[in-house]
């Protein structure tokens, strides 16, 4: 965790400093003679400064615990880790659907494709029994159709949402 803390502390410091700098650049409306204590940048500047300080404390602590000793070879284990593989697949499927398919394909079709792919990709890799794989494909197909139809109908007809 010290290594993760080392990296996140740098991110937090940069974020805090970025917020601080942006806040100081915000207008102070002197020409409108507004009260200087109401200027928009005052609170975000304080928040940015406090975040930077907390990030710095985390950084010092992680350095004292040896968190700076990140080895390049460690990334190989991370990349080929089964959990990382499952995460990458999950991210690709979900982001591909929400940020890629939705809005480009008709909503029902995008949803059906996503549900079918999600179930198939995860269940396919979970077994090497061809009979179970065929069953899984059939289930995915039925589930995709049902979810796409039900969600589309409910949101469009019951909740009167104009689907993306």
């Amino acid at each position: 965790m010290a290594k993760a803390d080392f990296v996140t502390s740098i991110v937090v410091i940069l974020l805090g400093l970025g917020a601080l700098v942006q806040s100081l650049r915000m207008p102070r409306f002197e020409h409108l003679q507004v009260d200087p204590y109401t200027v928009p940048g005052i609170v975000p500047a304080i928040l940015g400064a406090v975040l930077s300080v907390m990030g710095a404390i985390l950084l010092v602590r992680s350095i004292l615990r040896g968190g700076w000793q990140i080895k390049a070879t460690g990334f190989g284990g991370l990349i080929f880790n089964p959990a990382t593989g499952r995460l990458a697949v999950g991210l690709a499927l979900t982001l591909g659907y929400a940020a890629g398919l939705v809005g480009r394909l008709p909503y029902w079709l995008a949803t059906a494709v996503f549900v079918f792919l999600f179930v198939t990709v995860y269940e396919w890799s979970a077994t090497d029994n061809s009979r179970r794989r065929v069953m899984s494909l059939a289930t995915a197909l039925v589930l995709a159709a049902v979810v796409a139809v039900v969600v589309t109908m409910v949101f469009q007809l019951v909740f009167l949402v104009r689907l993306p």
Partner: peptide
Amino acid sequence: PRERLMPIIFVLCTIGAFSIASRVFDIW
């Protein structure tokens, strides 16, 4: 099985975020 439940939940998350203000930005 979670492999069958999670895609349904994600579909609801996506449409749920969208339907509050009908903005694709909320999905982002």
